[in-house]
Design a protein around this nucleic acid. Structure first.
Length: 594
DNA sequence: GGTGAAAGCGCG
DNA sequence: AAAGCGCGCTTTCACC
């Protein structure tokens, strides 16, 4: 088994380059500057325009450095296409976003003044737009869709920004934690690029079978599938409205009320509360419509090619540090379609998700021994029931989610106080985070990612309510928006720290997977590409679950690696805390709901 | 005719 | 079953 590798592990030889800063040089080629651990520049190399992949590959063979570059999504993609994997990087754009906002950084001024590096993820994303731009006519102004708005890609600018970031980090009250966060975030960026390169093995025939089973055979373009037509007619008959508009919520609402169904919206949860013969078929119709529009044949045509689904992941795209996605809906693949994920012949899926990641992270952060004990080696919710705080597993789950999301009403709001008695340390942590947020303050995750400051409109609502002429309405609005922000910061510390745990898991796992012996060329999963087609590789990631595509012969060893990585992530973040992170793990040909 | 908000529902 | 957090995506519809 490969040795555990921490995201921020680094070569230890004295005087050895620790970082290598790469970027464009003035001549149109590449500049590469080795930087030692103390920040001194060791050497500068000029690399020809077409020689970067070879240069990086050679350096990786000698001894891994941490590549410092402006943006992993754009810099790493061509390297992977050329068959070059890198061990570590420092993503200047992502790290800039974290550092400029981090409350623990005491001297952020220089960094914050570097506005050209303040490019939010969603602007940098979607390079695919280049391919969908229409052929320009003679008179069109040709605009590069996003490139012009990205961060600087020159080596000089990269060096300057890297030094700003090192200074900012050095001024942090807990530089070690923040450094770990920067390493984990950057490793996540590598994983996202690698996921895009390898793709998710996707069985088009199985997807088509699932669609046909629900909707009927694929209809002609523009036509509704048979089953939607049939079910729609049943709905209209039961409503006594032969041409009821089922696809327009406002118009459907009027028809429903005319038929005596007293609803205020057409959402399924409200419909389900009423007894009427039109409702079951209407709910069925809505399911079919959703499947067709979100993940129907059009989706299949657009997003799956050569047996691979390649969604666009946006690392750091959510303020809490979770990934977002932009195109393809990677984070919303319905459970119904999971069987369409199918391993290549001779390969298998090792799928794992963490049971109750967020409450476990909360227990670890808060040092809540009682909650840690409730989750030790078993289902956390079962442990909460055993502790006597609530009666059933379902109650435990509802209460726990309510505690982390800040619910105050209904069954959840009623159960939360019982958790407060049973797990005072954990509850104090989230209650404090909510209190700080409600007062306009900033909270931070375990590793130091900070919540954004309240917006100008939030501040003005609060100050308006404290004026002498403020009305009761002003005060009520201020209280409500303060509570809203409290719920956000309450959840931020938990969701954000869970995202950090997941990044550390991914970072450790990708290193372990890279150390497996490659399979023979004849057994390769060739659609996964030059770098990943011959080794187990990550194929899917969704907040707290991963799917590894692995050669059959390695599946058991990969399962061990997945488990060891989870344990390593727990130790790395919460060394000493007696909290474990058990996985639900399966080895299958097809991904399944588990 | 293009844009943005809202509704609705999928995921964690 | 929603509620209480965080998202993306499609469709409809009001509006400029």
């Amino acid at each position: 088994m490969p040795a555990p590798t921490q995201p921020d592990a680094s070569p230890s030889a004295p005087g050895a380059p620790r970082w290598c800063v790469v970027g464009r040089d003035a001549a149109g080629g590449w500049g590469a500057v080795d930087v030692a651990a103390d920040g001194t520049r060791i050497a500068t190399v000029t690399v020809p325009a077409n020689g970067l992949a070879d240069f990086v590959a050679e350096r990786e063979r000698i001894a891994a450095v941490r590549w410092v570059w402006h943006d992993t999504a754009s810099r790493y993609r061509p390297l992977l296409a050329a068959g070059v994997r890198v061990e570590r990087c420092h993503d200047l754009r992502l790290c800039h976003q974290i550092l400029r906002n981090a409350a623990s950084v005491q001297q952020p001024a220089a960094l914050r003044a570097a506005h050209e590096w303040n490019v939010p993820p969603e602007i940098e994303a979607a390079p695919a737009a280049v391919e969908t731009v229409a052929i320009p006519t003679l008179f069109d102004v040709i605009v590069e869709p996003n490139a012009a708005r990205g961060v600087p890609d020159g080596v000089t600018e990269a060096l300057t920004e890297f030094e700003r970031q090192r200074s900012a980090l050095a001024s942090a009250t807990e530089p070690g934690r923040l450094a770990l966060l920067l390493a984990a975030e950057s490793a996540g960026a590598l994983v996202a690029a690698e996921l895009a390169s390898a793709g998710i093995p996707w069985d088009v025939a199985e997807h088509d079978r699932i669609l046909a089973e629900s909707l009927g055979p694929r209809p002609a373009p523009g036509a509704k599938p048979d089953r939607m037509v049939e079910v729609g007619e049943v709905v209209r008959r039961e409503l006594g409205a032969p041409d009821a508009p089922l696809d327009s919520p406002p118009r459907l609402l009027r028809v429903l009320r005319a038929a005596g169904i007293e609803v205020n919206s057409t959402s399924q949860w409200e419909l389900a509360e009423h007894e009427h013969p039109a409702i079951p078929p209407l709910l069925h119709y809505k399911k079919l419509a959703r499947l067709l529009t979100a993940n129907g044949w059009a989706w299949l045509d657009e997003w799956v090619h050569d047996g691979r689904y390649r969604p666009v992941y946006i690392p750091g795209g959510v303020v809490t540090g979770r990934w977002a996605s932009n195109g393809g809906g990677a984070l919303q693949i319905p459970r119904q379609l999971r069987p369409a994920l199918r391993a290549d012949p001779g390969w298998t899926f090792v799928a794992a998700d963490v049971a109750q990641l967020e409450p476990r992270v909360l227990a670890a952060m808060a040092g809540d021994r009682a909650m840690a004990t409730a989750g030790a080696g078993r289902d956390l919710y079962a442990g909460i029931v055993e502790s006597g705080a609530v009666a059933t597993r379902q109650e435990a789950k509802i209460a726990m989610l309510g505690a982390m999301y800040g619910s105050t009403t209904g069954e959840s709001g009623r159960l939360v106080p019982r958790l407060r008695r049973a797990f005072p340390a954990a509850m104090r942590l989230v209650d404090d985070a909510a209190e700080v947020g409600a007062q306009g303050g900033t909270v931070s995750t375990w590793l130091g990612r900070s919540s954004p400051a309240p917006g100008a409109d939030w501040e003005s609502v609060q100050s308006a309510a404290s004026l002498p002429e403020a009305t009761g309405r002003d005060e009520a609005l201020a209280r409500r928006t303060a509570r809203d922000r409290g719920r956000f910061t309450r959840n931020f510390v938990v969701q954000g720290t869970a995202a950090e745990w997941a990044l550390c898991w991914l970072a450790d796992l990708r290193q372990r997977l890279a150390e497996f012996d490659p399979v023979a060329e004849s057994a390769a999963a060739s659609a996964s590409g030059a770098v990943f087609g011959r080794r187990p590789h990550l194929a899917f990631f969704l907040h707290d679950e991963v799917i590894v595509h692995a050669p059959l012969e390695h599946s058991e060893a990969v399962a061990v690696a997945v488990r060891e990585s989870a344990a390593a992530a727990g130790r790395l973040l919460f060394s000493g805390a007696q909290v474990d992170f058990p996985l639900d793990l399966s080895i299958t040909e097809r991904a399944e709901k588990h």
